[in-house]
């Protein structure tokens, strides 16, 4: 391939990336890949790609390349087979992205990443909570960390979601929405006792860990901080005889209403919902929930 047709193919590939991002923006599927707070970067990328694409396009029309002796290898003078390979690397994500952008991660990935409870309950690490055994040996640094440990309230879960906590403690029933999902579950995990007996309504997809009894499952959603690759599961155990839980298969989206209870499992106190009603629902338009943290501090 000569120089100019390389530039032309490259400009088409950049256009393809642009189209891919635009398609994601139009359909809203972008949030199935990237958290909303990363959107500024996506707009930046889209505009840069547009500019670069145009530049490559007009460059392909020029007669000769101005000699630019800048010590980097323009990767152009390579064999046909190799450039086919390189360009297909760029073309594949564009095509697969535009075709399967609405796919949502489900129970198999949840199982893969591991439900937090399972991780915590399987072997509560003693090292993590061990007291400062070596504090006498070292003065300054451990004093500092001691001081931090003495006042854990600086950044406790309830301090992070003060309004949510107030609202939940005052009311007898509450609903988990997209916006308070992560906060609510963190609060529930933090201090189950405060919420036992209250009524909760939540939605999510169903999944089960290996070895769960028949009448137990988890209803949860993926929480994303930057992109889907860093997603983790936020969910609550659902257990009870009143409903036939086995009719809800893994990956089914459900809305659960039930009473918060507390279970003790390997010395961990976990919240659990005893369902009063479960019904199947459609997958919400935004199936993931997003970590919120402000950079302003």
């Amino acid at each position: 391939m000569d120089r100019n047709s390389h530039y032309f193919v490259r400009s088409v590939i950049l256009l393809g990336f642009g189209l891919f991002i635009i398609k994601l923006l139009i359909s809203g599927d972008i949030h199935k890949f990237i958290a909303p707070r990363m959107m500024t970067y996506m707009y930046f990328a889209l505009s840069v790609i547009a500019v670069l694409g145009m530049i490559q396009f007009f460059r392909s029309g020029t007669e000769d390349e101005q000699s630019c002796d800048c010590g980097h290898t323009h990767d152009l003078s390579i064999s046909k087979g190799r450039s086919l390979f390189v360009y297909s690397l760029f073309i594949i994500p564009i095509i697969s992205g535009m075709m399967f952008s609405d796919h949502v991660l489900g129970s198999s990935q949840a199982l893969n990443k591991g439900f937090k409870y399972e991780l915590r309950s399987s072997s509560p690490s003693e090292e993590y909570d061990k007291p400062e055994s070596s504090s006498s040996e070292d003065g300054k640094a451990s004093e500092e960390s001691d001081a931090l440990l003495e006042d854990p309230a600086i950044l406790s879960v309830s301090d992070r979601y003060p309004e949510l906590q107030k609202e939940f403690q005052e009311s007898t029933s509450f609903t988990l929405t997209e916006d308070n999902y992560i906060g609510s579950i963190s609060l529930l995990e933090d201090q189950v006792d405060d919420y036992v007996g209250k009524e909760v309504k939540m939605n999510g997809f169903v999944f089960r860990e290996d070895g769960f009894p028949e009448d137990r499952m988890v209803v949860g959603r993926f929480g994303i901080s930057c992109c889907v690759a860093d997603g983790g599961i936020y969910g609550l155990l659902v257990q009870g005889d009143s409903q036939n839980l086995s009719e809800f298969k893994n990956d089914a989206w459900v809305e659960v209403t039930g009473i918060v209870k507390k279970v003790e499992h390997n010395n961990w106190e976990l919240p659990l919902i005893e369902p009063t009603s479960i019904k199947k629902i459609e997958i919400p338009a935004e199936p993931y929930v997003y970590e919120e943290f402000e950079f302003s501090g």
């Binding site: 991002i21 994601l24 972008i30 199935k32 890949f33 990237i34 990363m38 996506m42 994500p93 697969s96 992205g97 399967f100 952008s101 796919h103 949502v104 991660l105 489900g106 198999s108 990935q109 930057c226 992109c227 889907v228 690759a229």
Partner: peptide, 12 residues
Amino acid sequence: DMNTIFLSIVLE
């Protein structure tokens, strides 16, 4: 699943 994770890493 793989495709989605792959694309999200690329997009990010």
